[in-house]
Structure formats: C-alpha cells, structure tokens
Design a protein around this nucleic acid. Structure first.
Lengths: 102, 102
DNA sequence: CTGTTACATAACTGGAGGGTTATCTACCCA
DNA sequence: TGGGTAGATAACCCTCCAGTTATGTAACAG
C-alpha cells in the first residue's frame, strides 16, 4: 500500500488536489478548474488517488464528489516517523557545532 | 523536491535500502546483497535516491559508501503533517461512535 | 604489469505514467 | 423525446522507469 500512496503523492497535481480537498468535498469539474489540463487528465489523477485509497467518491446526480480519505497518509507518516531520529540527531549536531563557533 | 522524494519512496527496494542505512553506512555490494537483483539495478536505485537527496556517497578506495541523508524525509513528513488533523478527526469521530454503541 | 574487487555506464526491452482528442454514458430538465 | 451537463472511457502519443546483459573504469594486491 505504501507503494501506491507514495507514487500518488509524487505528482504535484495530485498533491494540489488533496490540498484542495482539505477544504471540503468537491466535484471533478471543481477540482479540474485550477489546472491548465483537460478533464480526462484530472479523471486519471482521481483514479490514481482512489486506487491508492486517498480519496473516496460519492454520487450526487451527475456529479461524483470526491472526499479526502486520510488513512494512507497516516500510514505514510508512520513509516516516515521511523527516520525522525535521524534528522533530529543531525540538527542536534549542527546546533552543537554552531554553539562551538561562538 | 517533494516530487523526487515521494517518487523515490514509492519503490519497496529503495525503502528497504533506506531502512538498511539507518543501521549505518554501507557499500553498494552490501546494500545489494539482500535483493534478488543485479548490481546495476541497485546502482540505479542508488542514483535515484542520491538525486532525491536521500543519500550521500563517499569514497573509500574502490568502495562508495552510502549514508542516509534524512532532510528530504523531514520535508515529506512536514508536508504530510498538514493532513494529520484529518485522520485524527476521523478517529475521534470513530471513538465517539463506538462509545455511543456501548 | 597483472589480476581482482567494487562499482559505473551503455544499450536494450517491456511496461507504466501523464498527457492529448474524440467519443460514450448517465443524469437532469423542458 | 430531445438537449445539455458531468464525468468516464478509448485510443493513441511520448517519456520515464525498472530490470537485464555486457562492458568499462578505478583502485588495491601480488
């Protein structure tokens, strides 16, 4: 699952879509509006996000509203948390170095 | 930069390499050992990780030791942190629901 | 100088990604 | 029934990616 999650997050259009969805659910046309890109292109991005479990889709007449589904983001964050010690250690070293220079 | 970071993390081999590097620096051959994959394949993965800034490489005679460079991981975590509220809110709702069922 | 170890590079292949245009489907409305 | 709107699907581009084998290169060991 991490594969699909990280792959989905690797595209700036898709990250922007997720960011937009934090403001609430949105239709495909609404999501497409900010981008200089055809509607089918956006539909493809949405399919990628859906397969990765990052969004869920509803039905409202012809509209297919998208909602954020943050669980995979939680998993990704959890994976990354393993490495937190590393950059924290690095910053502690840097701090110590800077302190020594004064 | 997030593009390259997430793209690099989307591959399980590369994530395993990063995990290995948390135990300390390692040569290409050492990193390649656990995988049923040719050495050039590993070299390619390392190049991807290096371009994403996730590892740095040294020189020790013929060996090219790799070290973890966690800064991009920190950036990625930071980006993901924006969404933390969403899954936390969802879990709070779930908790409330479960409580109501008792 | 020779050989060996450690790694990089080149050239190729199959398949996936991101984009396009054109078309199809589903639903609402008059 | 017909038309318009929201969105999905198809077919096709080109590029990048992940792997392969074969070969090249840099540094040590005798």
């Amino acid at each position: 699952m991490l594969d699909a999650t990280f792959a989905a997050l690797a595209d700036p259009t898709r990250r922007a879509i997720l960011a937009r969805l934090t403001e609430g659910e949105a239709s495909v046309t609404e999501l497409a509006a900010p981008f200089a890109m055809s509607q089918p292109a956006i539909s493809k991005h949405l399919k990628v996000l859906e397969k990765a479990g990052l969004i869920t889709r509803g039905r409202d007449a012809q509209r297919r509203p998208c909602r954020l589904a943050a669980e995979p983001l939680r998993e990704a964050t959890e994976w990354l948390a393993t490495y937190r010690d590393y950059w924290e250690a690095r910053y502690r070293k840097l701090d110590a170095l800077l302190e020594g220079m004064e």
